[in-house]
């Protein structure tokens, strides 16, 4: 159950059902909304969604790293990344309900991550 992944299709469907807008229009609006958020972040502006959290652009400096597969030293270029700061409300919610479900208790966060990426 916890492995279930939600995609834009299911979000658009629910939004369409609840607002009464057509699927097509809902889907268009959804893409416009995401594009707006993306272009704002590309301009290095932060995006705040109250009760959910905020997206902030951070500049990472160039540093030395290593290819994890080969072990060879490599330069990691300066780059920009998005960091997501969840709101306290969201933190509270994720903590309560996932702590109650014993599904993943035996797994470490690392194992969970590997699993979701696979």
């Amino acid at each position: 159950m916890t492995n279930q992944t939600i995609t834009r299709a299911s979000i658009v469907k629910i939004a369409s059902d609840k607002t009464g807008l057509s699927k097509h229009l809902s889907s268009q609006m959804f893409e416009t909304m995401l594009d707006m958020i993306i272009s704002e972040l590309c301009d290095e502006q932060s995006v705040k969604l109250s009760t959910f959290g905020s997206f902030i652009v951070r500049r990472k400096k160039q540093r030395m790293g290593r290819n994890p597969k080969t072990g060879i030293d490599a330069v990691i270029n300066a780059r920009k990344v998005i960091s997501f700061r969840p709101s306290h409300i969201l933190r509270m919610h994720t903590n309560i309900s996932t702590a109650n479900s014993s599904n993943n208790k035996s797994k470490t966060s690392r194992e969970r991550t590997v699993q979701t990426r696979a």
Partner: peptide
Amino acid sequence: KFVNIFVQQLADAMSKGKRVELRGF
């Protein structure tokens, strides 16, 4: 309402421990 549903959907899914994948984002 539309925007609120979007945010609510994300929050609900995460509250249930689910993953939300938005391709391209």
